[in-house]
Each structure stands twice: as structure tokens, then as C-alpha cells.
């Protein structure tokens, strides 16, 4: 129910965008999100794009994981 799927914006027409995920295409409502563009990844939930996915933040989290999993103990900064 709260499932949201990462999907990529292929094209935008007014308040809707064609998005693709895992070989599927869907016409998603953009009524809940400003400032999205073709090529952006969004979270698709019950027919709406609810948030943009931030690639830089994703990389930052992966970096944090790699730092933390190699840390010696609790004193490591994060």
C-alpha cells in the first residue's frame, strides 16, 4: 500500500509525465511535485510522483555505508 517505485521520467505533458520502471510505462500525475524534468528519477506512489530521487544523496549514502562498515568501533564520525 505504501509501496513506492523508483521510476524515470521519459516525457512531460502538462500535469502528467510518462514514466518507466522495469520495462513498464505509466502516466503519472505531477500534481504533487514541482521542478521535475525529463531524465529525473522519481518515486511513483498510487499514480503520483511524490518525490524526486537525488542521485548525489544516493552516492553520499553509499559512501557513508562503506565508511561505516569498515570502521573499528563506535567512535567513528558519521
Amino acid at each position: 500500500m505504501c509501496l513506492s517505485i523508483p521510476a524515470k521520467i521519459e516525457s512531460i505533458e502538462g500535469e502528467y509525465a510518462m514514466v518507466s520502471f522495469g520495462g513498464n510505462r505509466y502516466r503519472a500525475g505531477l500534481q504533487l511535485l514541482d521542478d521535475v524534468g525529463v531524465g529525473d528519477y522519481i518515486l511513483l506512489h498510487a499514480g503520483f510522483a511524490i518525490q524526486k530521487l537525488d542521485r548525489k544523496e544516493a552516492e553520499e549514502t553509499l559512501r557513508l555505508i562503506d565508511e561505516m562498515r569498515n570502521s573499528p568501533g563506535t567512535e567513528n564520525i558519521y
Binding site: 523508483p6 524515470k8 528519477y41 542521485r55 544516493a58 549514502t61 553509499l62 555505508i65 562498515r69 569498515n70
Partner: peptide, 25 residues
Amino acid sequence: IRTGTDKAVYEGFRDPERISGLAAQ
């Protein structure tokens, strides 16, 4: 850090090495 396609970024969160490394930590 894995760079390349966006897909690789999201798949980075399923990487077995990361999973076992985090669990060990």
C-alpha cells in the same frame, strides 16, 4: 563508490558485500 548509470546507484543498496559488512559492523 559505484558510479555509472543511475541504476547502478540504486543497486548499490543491494550489494552483498555492503550488506554483510554492515551486519558485521
